[in-house]
Design a protein around this nucleic acid. Structure first.
Lengths: 107, 107
DNA sequence: AATTTGTGCAACCGAATAGTTGCGCATATA
DNA sequence: TATATGCGCAACTATTCGGTTGCACAAATT
């Protein structure tokens, strides 16, 4: 199944998982210990992250180590790039609107 | 209602709306013209974006101009900041894991 | 004054989401 | 060989989501 990474990071648990494994690869059990919900629920989240390739896995015997896929995270960052110029810009769209409305009233 | 901005940008239509109004404030009708779905459906999306303060509004008579709230977009960027060091790092968590596994096998 | 226009709100509906429990199965361990 | 462990998969459930249509109402236009 193809998945949208933006939809994947919509869930707070999944964002927490990403933060967890960012510094070190972890097994599902180790990850699940950090949450209140069941191991299977956490495993489902991991699977969703894997489907959109935000995480990748490496099997070692019966253990599976999940790790962050930085490349995919970059894709999210790439979208944000569209807006970065906005918040670096002194005159944003609100300013433009206000100027427009003021001009209108003066007529 | 309090809303999660990550949940808000999960929907592709909402992301498109954000891009649309990034450069210029727009009314709901003008925004809706860019999509196949009904005006009301688009309006719902705008409302969700407003609830999490990704967009702000300015009324002018019976027209409402929606514009991007850069400040809130920055919050998303802030979260990504956690991972930025990862993809700038030569040795990421996968490398660490591989080294770990290799050491294990040599035992 | 009558009509059109811009907008929000409510009710409804099917699909997707996030959680649960139970199970099967391969790999470790005793 | 028998048992324990790590993991994924399937079935079920309540809730949320994204869409629709119909309506109300204030503001603009005729």
């Amino acid at each position: 199944m193809r998945r949208d990474p933006f939809q994947a990071i919509a869930d707070p648990t999944r964002r927490a998982i990403l933060l967890l494994i960012a510094s070190q690869a972890m097994t599902p059990n180790a990850i699940a210990e950090n949450f209140k919900s069941s191991r299977q629920a956490v495993s489902k989240h991991i699977q969703i992250l894997a489907e959109c390739e935000l995480v990748k896995q490496k099997q070692d015997g019966r253990e599976i180590y999940y790790h962050l896929n930085s490349t995919k995270m970059k894709e999210i960052d790439k979208w944000l790039e569209n807006f970065r110029k906005m918040w670096e810009n002194k005159f944003d769209s609100l300013d433009k609107l206000l100027l427009k409305l003021q001009t209108k009233q003066k007529k």
